[in-house]
Amino acid sequence: MNSTLSSTSIRFTVWLRLNLGLALLLILPACQSTNRLREAQDAFNSAASQDNRARLAELRLSSGAPGLPTGWNQSAGVSLEQEVSGSISARAGYSAALLSLQQLSSDDVAQLKADQLWGTALTLKALTQWRLGQFGPALETARQAQTTASGQIYPRDAALLTALPGLIEIDYSYASLSAFRANPTNAQATLDQWRARLVTLNSTPPSAVDHLRAARRQAGAEGELAVYLMLSELAAYRNFNEYFKLVNDSTPPATDAARMEAGYVLHELGELLNQLNAGPAGTELVTTWKNKFVLLPKPRPVLP
């Protein structure tokens, strides 16, 4: 260091650079565990984005209709081929996320616990396992999170862990559809079972919608998390609707409890999206769901 620097300000600048540079050098090794977790989050987010894009684009898959506005004649969604490749790509992303989390060393785990990030890591692992169809391990990881990291589970993650059994149930019902289509034995019993497992309120054991409602109560009836949970409820109804069609050769009647409840949820979703200033994207989501799945949004009746 040149001790003949004459200006105090120059010395200060040099000093500042010194200690900032040193600071950055010092933090790198100390952040390894956090970096691994962030890598897993990045991979998961990328996969989930692809997942959601494909799913939401399917809502508007259209080859054109008479008199459609110009922009609407060109589907902004994906073709079947794109849907498959998107699904494969998403799966690869979830696998990468899970791999990052499974490669955490004992030192990494200790550091994550010390930094109060262990609950975040376990929640992400459970979600990843769910999306990869590893339902049993996902539930086990969720249980582990709730027992070993209970002080480190933050609001969103806590709600997701509550919702997870419901999300798994919805995926399981979807995965079982093709088998049921191929061989609809014990059709009515199967339908009754899926009604109870998916959409019946206050069911024992709790239905998918019960789990999602419990999570909504945790998260508060506001924010993006509530949007996600309400859409997941509608997804549960969609799958139930499929089983109903296969058994009864029609959609559930307008007076069906599950169909009515789905209508209330769709209306509430629209209200929430308005409150969140979701704009045209929000209203289009509700309108599309309404018209594609023929589900009329209705305000929930107020009890006297």
């Binding site: 962030r38 987010n45 984005s49 109060q116 992400l124 979600l127 995965a175 997941s232 997804a235 799958n239």
Partner: peptide, 14 residues
């Protein structure tokens, strides 16, 4: 990292 946004994947539905 705690605060990081997470993209939540919708469950599979028809």
């Amino acid at each position: 990292t705690k605060r990081r946004e997470l993209v939540l994947p919708l469950p599979n539905f028809e």
